[in-house]
Nucleic acid binder design. Structure first.
Length: 879
RNA sequence: GGGCAAUUAGCUCAGAUGGUUAGAGCGCUUCGUUUACACCGAAGAGGUCGGGGGUUCAAAUCCCUCAUUGCCCACCA
């Protein structure tokens, strides 16, 4: 085992080793949560993998997510902590149903109605099963050390039961209600959409300023004249003198063949400056108008239906015609009767479906909602230090706010904290019912009231269907984010716990106790609202604790020109192609180094190729060490200055890398490793070993520990080399290296100068200057000459320049780069440093002491500043 | 309308609490195939840190202002 290796290929072949290594890890059970004895940290480290959509294939967003999460997971695992990384998939209701329906249409020209509910669901499940297999194998290709035994799917029975349980809980608490409200309706998807499932597109529209009829006293403006058939009022500002005389009147007009009853109401939301200062109120087709209508008790007339056609209410001329046709007809009617005062083209934010970009039709509809502003009684102590306890009164909004404001959840980067709070501030009741078939059926059953026929419906809400006949289940399904909002804890419930009840489900789930709250939630900032906020809402409500401690938001992966990657643009980079070509390690590095949380990254093939080159460099450093040194148990002992330098640098590196990773600064951690490995170890130290023999112990030692440091970034190549080193246990399960005591790095500085500048150097550092000559590269002379130089001058403590042997040509010396290390402490520099530090400590101290700071700054900030003060004091002592 | 971010080398980007001469990768120029590596090595060019003002012993970093770009939120009919 302990012998030199020969015949290692000069080029690292990732394709050849990666899949075997992954299989070996998985087979060895290294992904299962396990705490190593003697580990100080008792708390487990948990990440719930943001579940990819069941129809998806691996894209760069996933790749980035996996690279970052696997980095954290492996780091904590190496530190001996018990780590759990829960994988899974999301059924992604609308998205998935759309995909499958489209596919079926293309292949068989059948719609979902041709197939029927049962058949469509079966077809979707078949499709999903296949997709999940693809995703699983692709996630493995990335090297993700997921605990596959914990894999979950949002439609698993355990998770579905959890959905029904939470639904019932919220219903019982009065937080879920059914109501007639204006919702966003997608006429193509044939379903409601939540407020954040709609997007806005900048377009232009024609704004018509007109009267309903000749005798109507007020001009109104609209870009959608056809909806005016549903108007029941005109709203004006209460202080608007122009219209004051009309307020309170009810007028009847004949508009485009339909008789309208219009009340004139005064409402402060109306902007006097905009348009005519009067708004035609359409309560059934505008959320804003619905709110006005509610205040003034106005009726709502629904003139557009779910298919995007006019209803009977729109009058016989228009009923059942598509909205766009009716607009043309209404405008024509207005023109004919000379009612249009003005037509202008205005910029408009068109609201469209985020899935299919179809313009959204706001319409009034009977749906299920989650009430975010309703007061309810907490079921349990909630959120630790926040002023809440069992029985206290709160709203869901307050829970969401508290979780972040109290510092129980930290968002990285912190600017998103503001975004999050702002979003909650504007949040309205969440429409959770969807008119699609794929998903969690709403656990509500109806039956006609038995005693008085025709008197309406009786409602049953339950985890199980009603035991007696005669009940019919609500046909709708739940918004997919309802179930993914439960993800951090629904995945930890006992999967066979079918008997779980509202009373005992928490106690019955040991995993929930042990692994919740999770440590970090890592995801793209684009789903901060969709998902992250929903998880906070659901979890603080259901469990009385936060779902995670830290939210790490990564940016979006874009192409070289900063454009979004999309199939239509043809600029999509497939991560699997890149893995095939450059290896998973290179792909991972390209997504971690040079990226910062919350900021988009541009990725292109050259970048990945660059990191492939680095992986090969690491391979060749290892190859050199493996083939030229023998394994030894001797501890690494510094003999020459170069040894002392590299060992000190290495200890410094360990410190820096851990510090960065602990602070979620993955890119600087990777950069530090990269710099050490290539510029210090390979370019300088390894070169010295060629002329200064006897470095086996140091080289082997550094390589061994360096592989551990690199492992969270590049798991495959490090594991491969590790095993070539003859280690008995796989790298994945080894220990993170301890930091050893070394001479302070302040004692060394590396100086790179030309030989002719060396005299100045000597003057600067005095007689204590220790020099080491090495020849990094392009000398024209032979290795033997280099060796002579080093032997005669190398470790000289005196003025070497006068000792250059006569047979060394002057041009060699002048043209060469000299590697010199000053072992002296630069007293002046040290003093400056001390002064700065002292000043810094004074400043910090003053800041902390000041009333303004101590009374106003958040607790977390004060703690941080205090910690800084401690650190600075410690550092000063060290100097 | 409100908010957030970005603007640093030809390109893509780092620069934590202000602190030596502003960094990296790619690209470019010159040189070099010496037994870890040409997916390499050596040397080098290239920056008024978007403009202007201010605070400070010290500003890419903090403040004000302007410009450009991008994103998010919002019921302006």
């Amino acid at each position: 085992m302990k012998k030199k290796l020969t015949n290692l290929p000069p080029t690292y072949n990732a394709q050849k080793v990666e899949q075997d290594i992954y299989a070996q890890w998985e087979k060895g059970g290294y992904f299962l949560p396990k705490r190593r004895p003697n580990t100080k940290t008792k708390k487990p480290f948990i990440i719930s993998l943001p579940p990819p959509n069941a129809t998806g294939t691996l894209h760069l967003g996933h790749a980035m997510m996996l690279a970052i999460e696997d980095l954290m997971i492996r780091y904590h695992r190496l530190k001996g902590e018990e780590v759990l990384w829960v994988p899974g998939t999301d059924h992604a209701a609308i998205a998935t149903q759309n995909v499958v329906e489209k596919k079926i249409w293309q292949e068989e020209k059948k719609t979902r109605h041709d197939l029927g509910r049962e058949t469509l669901l079966r077809r979707i499940e078949e499709f999903v099963e296949q997709s999940r297999g693809t995703i699983r194998s692709q996630f493995r290709r990335m090297g993700a050390s997921l605990d596959w035994s914990h894999e979950r799917y949002t439609l698993d029975e355990g998770l579905s039961r959890c959905v029904r349980m939470i639904f019932k809980m919220m219903y019982d608490d009065g937080l879920i209600y059914r109501g007639n409200r204006v919702v966003n309706w997608c006429t193509r998807c044939q379903t409601t959409l939540a407020d954040d499932e709609v997007e806005h597109r900048e377009t232009t529209a024609t704004l018509y300023t007109f009267r309903y009829s000749k005798d109507f006293p007020i001009l109104i403006a609209s870009t959608r004249p056809e909806t005016k058939l549903g108007d029941t009022a005109v709203a004006v500002h209460p202080d608007d003198e122009r219209y004051r005389q009309f307020v309170g009147q009810t007028l009847t007009v004949s508009f485009a063949g339909k008789e309208l009853t219009i009340r004139i109401v005064a409402d402060p939301v109306v902007d006097r400056e905009f348009g005519t200062g009067a708004v035609g109120v359409t309560p059934a087709h505008s959320q804003a108008d619905a709110e006005i209508a509610e205040r003034h008790k106005l009726p709502a007339v629904k003139v557009v239906d779910e298919a995007g056609a006019m209803t009977d209410e729109a009058g016989p001329d228009f009923a059942e015609l598509p909205v766009s046709d009716v607009r043309t007809k209404v405008v024509a009617w207005l023109r004919k009767h000379k009612l249009i005062e003005k037509e202008e083209t205005v910029p408009q934010n068109l609201t469209v479906c985020y899935r299919c970009e179809t313009p959204v039709e706001p319409l009034v509809s009977k749906q299920w909602f989650v009430a975010v502003n309703k007061l309810f009684e907490l079921r349990q102590d909630t959120l630790g230090n926040v002023r809440t306890e069992k029985g206290a009164i709160a709203t869901l909004k307050v829970l969401m706010q508290n979780a972040v404001e109290s510092g129980q959840i930290t968002i990285i980067p912190d600017r998103f904290q503001k975004t999050y709070l702002q979003w909650i501030y504007n949040l309205r009741d969440w429409c959770i019912s969807r008119q699609i078939w794929f998903g969690h059926r709403i656990p509500v059953w109806y039956r006609p009231k038995a005693d008085q026929p025709g008197a309406g419906l009786e409602i049953y809400v339950g985890i199980e269907p009603p035991k007696v006949d005669g009940w019919e289940q609500d046909p709708d399904t739940l918004d997919t984010w309802f179930s993914s909002g439960l993800w951090t804890f629904s995945t930890l419930l006992k999967q066979d716990g079918t008997a779980a009840t509202l009373e005992n489900w928490q106690a019955e789930s040991p995993d929930l106790k042990r692994y919740h709250p999770t440590s970090v939630l890592e995801t793209g900032y684009d789903i901060l609202f969709f998902w992250v906020a929903r998880m906070v809402l659901m979890t603080t409500y259901a469990l009385g604790e936060v779902p995670f401690r830290t939210v790490y938001l990564h940016g979006l992966v874009r192409d070289k020109d900063g454009r979004k990657m999309s199939k239509s643009l043809g600029n999509v980079i497939d991560p699997v192609d890149m893995i095939d070509k450059y290896g998973a390690d290179a792909v991972r590095l390209s997504l971690i180094i040079g990226t910062t949380p919350g900021n988009d990254v541009r990725l292109y093939e050259e970048k990945i190729a660059g990191y492939r080159n680095f992986v090969n460099k690491l391979w060749n450093i290892s190859r050199y060490i493996l083939t030229t040194t023998t394994a030894t148990d001797a501890p690494p002992k510094a003999k020459t200055l170069a040894d002392r330098w590299i060992l000190a640098e290495f200890e410094q590196l360990k410190h820096v890398v851990a510090k960065h990773i602990d602070a979620y600064r993955f890119s600087p951690a990777g950069e530090a490793l990269y710099e050490f490995t290539w510029s210090k170890l390979a370019d300088w130290y390894v070169e010295t070993t060629k002329v200064e023999g006897g470095k086996d112990a140091i080289l082997r030692h550094i390589l061994r520990e360096l592989l551990v440091l690199w492992h969270p970034f590049t798991p495959f190549v490090t594991e491969h080399i590790w095993q070539l080193l003859g280690e008995s246990k796989p790298l994945i399960s080894t220990n993170w290296p301890k930091i050893r005591e070394v001479e302070s790095v302040y004692e060394f500085s590396r100086i790179q100068e030309t030989a002719s500048a060396m005299r100045n150097l000597k003057q600067k550092h005095g007689n204590n200057l220790e020099m080491l000559y090495i020849v990094p590269g392009s000398w024209h002379e032979t290795l033997a000459t280099q060796r002579t130089l080093i032997e005669t001058l190398g470790r000289s403590k005196i003025n070497f320049a006068e000792q250059v042997p006569a047979d060394v040509p002057k041009r060699v010396l002048d043209g060469a780069t000299v590697f010199a290390m000053a072992a002296t402490v630069d007293k002046k520099k040290l003093q400056t440093e001390r002064d700065e530090l002292e000043r810094y400590i004074t400043t910090l101290h003053q800041r902390i002491q000041s009333d303004n700071f101590s009374s106003r700054a958040p607790a977390a900030v004060i703690a941080k500043e205090k910690e800084r003060l401690q650190q600075a004091k410690k550092k000063l002592k060290h100097l």
